[in-house]
Design a protein around this nucleic acid. Structure first.
Lengths: 232, 232
DNA sequence: GGCTATCATTTTGAATGCAAAATTCAATGG
DNA sequence: CCATTGAATTTTGCATTCAAAATGATAGCC
């Protein structure tokens, strides 16, 4: 019995999109982009009507998203968009920090020059957004840079694992209203990151990426908790 | 809009087991324990009969397991038990090594004395199995020790993430026929691990756990590739 | 007036049914 | 004899249906 295949086949990805997969993706987007409020119940009926499908593929999609941690299924009581406790958030970030570190370590040696150039291009686009104070585009490019480096590690499992965690926290991370000072600091960190990547300094890149995410989250959390207290 | 809940609720886990969850678990076990051969097609019909259920909950379970990477769904062509390429295996281990390192770092400071004592007990049970050359029980206890340390990190997300990856490779890891020398070495590494944990030396424990997994896999892979070549 | 109990309605969990795609297998032609 | 084609059968994808649980509403009681 061969449990492991000696080397991977070409793996064409032409696979026709099933209705089920379509729904998983669209529903995931709705949740990740924050269009569906966390903690709110999501009756199957309204989603069916929204997507124009029957309950069977919708329920399949809900189970999948539940296993990803994006929705919570209450037995006999339907689905709710999974709320994040700060504890869970801390935990997820802790793991993501580690994975970013791994990505940096690997990407430094494995990324092609072309891929590094692309990151550089994204970086300068991001600087442009910073200069224009275009927060939304800045976030998009920021994410793109991080995902590019993760992908640059050449480890599909890492990409997938990171992606699953990222999906759970992205909603929260977009909430940040960067103060000018913090924003400048984040940009400075990104400069260092790009520099380390260009020099292919694995240890440094790894540390910078980990620290960057830790810092980003630290400030996000402070801002959030200040907001909570102000609201009370 | 509160995206994050300030602190976590008691979170009672009395939830009645739905038929769907039951099937996910049983099917996962069948795959992880190697009872279903990788790469083999799994017609819905035979699984339905095996579990005595209809296709609806079974199909839901298949989608979930597909999202965990344990089965592959070929559109209109059913499910196959996901085969592991050596590339994927390398990737998964790379991530698991990192996560073990994180677990060690955290567990060293966060585990309770009682939890450490339990690990110690498992360790000595494992030594007994080593002495008796009881490989199967040894593997079980080995897994239990690693899972206990991962759990000792006090990070549910880490447990879940590690568990998902572990499920994909466990089948393969059990295949190992440890040579006497390698087995002795693994036991020696475990001694060091227990010592570092007892001393709560985070850095050391982290490094030992990472190295241990890397070594274990390295040898497993060599043995496997030797086996493949011998079979040719 | 407020609270509980009972019943109607809605919603979920799972089985069944139906159409489309894939697989099987036999027959035909080279 | 082997390859190819095409119908019969099986299998999958999704919709529909049915039963059980939960929700909401109304009436009765304190």
């Amino acid at each position: 019995m061969a449990t492991v295949i000696p080397h991977s086949p070409p793996e064409q990805r032409i696979a026709r999109r099933s209705l089920h997969d379509e729904v998983v993706e669209r529903l995931r987007d709705l949740i990740v982009e924050g269009e569906l409020e966390p903690g709110k119940r999501v009756p199957e009926r309204v989603l069916c009507e929204r997507f124009g499908i029957s309950r069977t593929p919708l329920r399949e999609a809900l189970k999948v998203l539940a296993s990803e941690g994006l929705v919570e299924l209450l037995p006999n009581r339907g689905a709710v968009v999974a709320p994040l406790t700060v504890t869970e958030l801390d935990e997820i970030i802790e793991v993501m920090v580690t994975l970013e570190g791994l990505a940096g370590m690997l990407a430094a040696s494995r990324m092609s020059d072309a891929a590094i150039s692309e990151v550089k291009a994204l970086h300068y686009e991001m600087l442009a957004c910073h200069a224009r104070a275009d927060l939304h585009s800045y976030f998009k490019l920021n994410q793109a840079i991080h995902l590019a480096i993760i992908a640059g590690a050449g480890n599909a499992t890492l990409v997938q694992t990171y992606g699953a965690l990222n999906g759970r926290v992205r909603r929260f991370r977009y909430m940040a209203n960067l103060s000018g000072e913090r924003w400048d600091h984040a940009v400075a960190e990104h400069d260092e990151i790009l520099s380390a990547l260009t020099k292919r300094d694995a240890t440094l890149l790894s540390r910078l990426l980990s620290d960057h995410l830790r810092n980003k989250y630290q400030h996000l959390k402070q801002a959030y908790q200040a907001g909570v207290e102000a609201a009370e």
